[in-house]
Nucleic acid binder design. Structure first.
Length: 594
RNA sequence: GCGGCGGUCGUCUAGCCUGGACUAGGACGCCGGCCCUCCAAGCCGGAGAUCCCGGGUUCAAAUCCCGGCCGCCGCACCA
C-alpha cells in the first residue's frame, strides 16, 4: 500500500531523477524556500503557463491583455500599495526562552481586543500595562519590533534609493494601468495579466514547493465599471460559465460552523448575492474550469471565502481556491480578491496621476453650472479703501468654495469682512455633460504557479506495483510524443529501423511538436522512462514499418497500441493534443447561435 | 524563530554505539559493449561519495564533542 508520504517521496525522487525540480543551491547545502526547475520541469511549467494564457487570458473574448513589468520596485510604489505597512508583522521575543510571537496576536488572545494595525509603541504600552508575558514560559517579552516580509534592496550602487522585490505582480498592473488603458483605447472592462517572479522573505518557509521565498505568480487585474457590471457580465458570460458548478464555503457558513462546502453554479453565486460583484463569479468559474482542465478532479477543488480579518488589507471580498493534496491536505492555489478601487486610489493619491476611466452617459445630461465673479464696481462702492486687498484675497479662493459659501449661505468672509452675494456676479448656466470620471473597480484572480505545478504533479502521479507514471493531461506534458526504434542492433534492418525512427523524430521537431527520442535499453525501459515524465504517446518503429510504412503508437495510461501510417503521425498527435476538434465543435455552436 | 529527530555515491542503504584493518562495502539507477520482434529482462565492463559544512579532542575521526546549514515532525509564522 502506498501512503501519502510514500507518494510524496516517490514524486520528489522522480522529480530529481528526471529533471523536474529540486531544492536550490544544493551544492552549497541548500537554502530554505528556494527551488529550481530542471529540464523537464521547465517544460511542464511552461505548458501550464501556456494553458493559463490560453484559457484565462487570451481565450476571454479579448477582455484580457498581458504585460511584463519590473521585479525591483521603488519603495514609494509599495508604500502606496500599503505593503510596506501591512507586510510587516509586529514580533516580540521572550527574553527567557527566546521564543517569538506576534505581539498583536498575544494582545488579542489575552485581552480579547483587536490590536491589528496598532502602532508599535501603543502595543508596547498595552503589553506593559497588562503585564503580558511569554505564554509558554512566563518570561519577560521585548517591545514589539517590525519584521518586514519584503526583500529589501537599493537602486544604484553607491547611495541607492530604497527598493524592494515585489511581493506580488499586481502593482505592476496598477502602476502601468494608465499606459495600458490608453493603448487599449480606454475601454472597460479590461483585464491586465502578468506572469512573473516575486519574493517574500518568509520567516520559516517549509513544505517544499508550497511555501517559497521566491516564486511565480500568474495573475490578472480585471478593471471594470461598477455601474455596468451586471450588463457587461451578461454580455461576456455564456451558459457554460454560468452553469459551472463550484464547491463553496462562504464566510456565513464558516460563522455557522458549517465546514462542508456547498455546490453553487456561477449563476447562483450571482443571484444569491454570495459574490459582491458578478465578475467575481465569472473569474471563479473560469478558474474552476482551468484547474479541471489541468486534470484536477472537481471534487478536489473548493473555494473558501475569507472572513474579514483573514483578508489582505486591500480586499473587500476574498475567495481562496484550494486543491486537496495527499501530502499537505487542502492547499491554496489561487486567491480571488475584490480589490475595489483600493490600489488605483492609492496610486492616484501618491503619484498624483489621473488613473480614472470615463463613463459616458447614454444621453448627454443637462447640468446647471454656477459661475461666480466679484463685481468690482459694487465692491469698490462698499469697501473703497480695502478694494485691492479684497480683490487679491478673492482671487485665491477656489470656485467651489465661492459657490459653496455664496450660494448656500449668502455671503463669504474675507479678511474678517462680510461680503454679501449682492457684490458678485452670479451666472447660472446649463451645459451638456457627456459623462464622468471614475476609478475603476478591480477583481483579481491570482494563481501561485509552483502550487499549481505541485498539485498537478501530485495528482498525476500514478503508482502501482507494476509501474509508476505521470498521467499528465497531454497538453501540459513536457513532450507530446516519444519516438523509439524497437531494436537497436547492428544488423542492417536494425539500422534501417533506427534511421526511420530518427527521421520521424526530426520531422516532428521540425513541425513544432515537442518530441523525445530514446534508443537506450530495452523497449520496456524506454516506455517506463517516458511514462515517468508524462509523455502521453509513444511511436515505435518496428520490422513491419520496413514493409508497409506503419508504426505503432502507444497511449501512456492504457498502454494500448494502434498501428498508423507514418504520414499520419503528425495529424494523429495534433488531433489528440490539439485544438482541431474544439475548433469544429465550437464553430458549429457559435454559427448556430448567430 | 523555538523544541525534538535526522543528514554516507543520483537513489536506498552497510559501517557510527565500542575511533585504527574503510583504498568507505552493497543494491538500484546511470554510461559503454553484447543480445535484439513491444512494456523497468539477461550477460560483461565502467564512471560515480566535499561521509552536510566549520572547528575541537586524538598518534588516528564517517565514527566522540561544540557551532552552523539543510530536511522532517510539533509550536509559532505565512496564504
Amino acid at each position: 500500500m502506498t501512503t501519502n508520504n510514500d507518494k510524496y517521496e516517490i514524486l520528489v525522487k522522480i522529480a530529481k531523477k528526471r529533471g523536474i525540480f529540486w531544492p536550490a543551491f544544493e551544492i552549497y547545502g541548500g537554502v530554505a524556500g528556494f527551488y529550481e526547475y530542471g529540464p523537464v520541469g521547465v517544460l511542464i511549467k511552461r505548458r501550464i503557463i501556456d494553458e493559463w494564457l490560453r484559457q484565462v487570458v487570451y481565450g476571454r473574448d479579448g477582455l484580457v491583455v498581458e504585460v511584463d513589468t519590473p521585479i525591483i520596485t521603488p519603495r514609494i510604489v509599495l508604500k502606496a500599495s500599503g505593503h510596506e505597512d501591512n507586510f510587516t508583522d509586529p514580533v516580540t521575543e521572550c527574553l527567557k526562552c527566546g521564543r517569538t510571537f506576534r505581539a498583536d496576536h498575544l494582545i488579542e488572545e489575552k485581552l480579547g481586543i483587536s490590536a491589528e494595525g496598532l502602532p508599535l509603541d501603543k502595543m508596547a504600552e498595552i503589553m506593559r500595562q497588562n503585564n503580558i508575558r511569554c505564554p509558554v514560559c512566563g518570561g519577560e517579552l521585548t517591545p514589539p519590533k517590525p519584521a518586514l516580509l519584503l526583500f529589501k534592496t537599493e537602486i544604484g550602487p553607491y547611495k541607492g534609493s530604497p527598493a524592494y522585490l515585489r511581493p506580488e505582480t499586481a502593482q505592476g498592473m496598477f502602476v502601468s494601468f494608465k499606459n495600458v488603458f490608453n493603448s487599449m483605447r480606454n475601454k472597460l472592462p479590461l483585464g491586465i495579466a502578468q506572469v512573473g517572479r516575486v519574493g517574500r522573505n518568509e520567516i520559516s518557509p517549509r513544505q517544499g514547493l508550497i511555501r517559497l521565498r521566491e516564486f511565480t505568480i500568474i495573475e490578472l487585474e480585471f478593471f471594470f465599471d461598477p455601474e455596468k457590471q451586471e450588463e457587461e457580465v451578461n454580455k461576456y458570460m455564456d451558459e457554460e460559465l454560468l452553469n459551472e458548478k463550484m464547491n463553496i464555503i462562504t464566510a456565513d457558513m464558516k460563522l455557522n460552523n458549517i465546514k462542508k462546502p456547498r455546490e453553487y453554479s456561477a449563476r447562483e453565486l450571482i443571484e444569491k448575492g454570495i459574490v459582491k460583484t458578478p465578475w467575481m463569479a465569472y473569474w471563479m468559474a473560469v478558474g474552476n474550469k482551468f484547474l479541471k482542465n489541468l486534470g484536477i478532479p472537481a471534487d478536489r477543488i473548493r473555494f473558501d471565502e475569507k472572513l474579514p480579518e483573514e483578508r489582505a488589507h486591500y480586499s473587500e471580498q476574498t475567495f481562496d481556491q484550494e486543491v486537496l493534496t495527499e501530502k499537505y491536505g487542502w492547499v491554496e492555489v489561487a486567491g480571488y480578491s475584490y480589490r475595489t478601487t483600493y490600489d488605483l486610489s492609492r496610486h492616484i493619491k501618491y503619484s498624483g496621476a489621473d488613473l480614472t476611466a470615463f463613463r459616458k452617459y447614454d444621453k448627454p445630461r443637462e447640468k446647471e453650472v454656477i459661475k461666480i465673479k466679484p463685481n468690482p464696481v459694487e465692491i469698490r462702492k462698499r469697501f473703497a479703501n480695502k478694494f485691492s486687498e479684497i480683490m487679491k484675497a478673492l482671487a485665491s479662493i477656489p470656485q467651489e468654495e465661492l459657490i459653496n459659501k455664496i450660494v448656500r449661505q449668502g455671503y463669504i468672509e474675507v479678511n474678517g469682512m462680510r461680503l454679501d452675494k449682492e457684490l458678485f456676479f452670479i451666472k447660472r448656466e446649463k451645459i451638456k455633460v457627456h459623462g464622468e470620471k471614475f476609478v475603476p473597480h478591480v477583481v483579481e484572480p491570482s494563481f501561485g504557479l509552483e502550487r499549481i505545478f505541485y498539485v498537478v504533479l501530485e495528482n498525476s502521479l500514478k503508482i502501482s506495483s507494476e509501474r509508476t507514471y505521470l498521467a499528465l493531461t497531454p497538453r501540459i506534458a513536457p513532450y507530446y510524443v516519444a519516438v523509439f526504434p524497437l531494436v537497436t542492433g547492428s544488423k542492417e534492418e536494425h539500422q534501417n529501423i533506427k534511421n526511420i525512427a530518427w527521421a520521424i523524430y526530426r520531422g516532428l521537431l521540425n513541425s513544432g511538436i515537442p518530441a523525445y527520442y530514446d534508443e537506450e535499453g530495452s523497449i520496456g525501459r524506454r516506455y517506463a522512462r517516458a511514462d515517468e515524465i508524462g509523455i502521453p504517446y509513444a511511436v515505435t518503429v518496428d520490422y513491419e514499418t520496413l514493409r508497409n510504412n506503419t508504426v505503432t503508437i502507444r497511449e501512456r495510461d492504457s498502454r494500448k497500441q494502434e498501428r498508423i501510417d507514418i504520414k499520419d503521425i503528425y495529424d494523429y498527435i495534433t488531433g489528440k493534443i490539439g485544438f482541431r476538434k474544439t475548433w469544429i465543435e465550437f464553430l458549429d455552436k457559435e454559427l448556430n447561435k448567430a
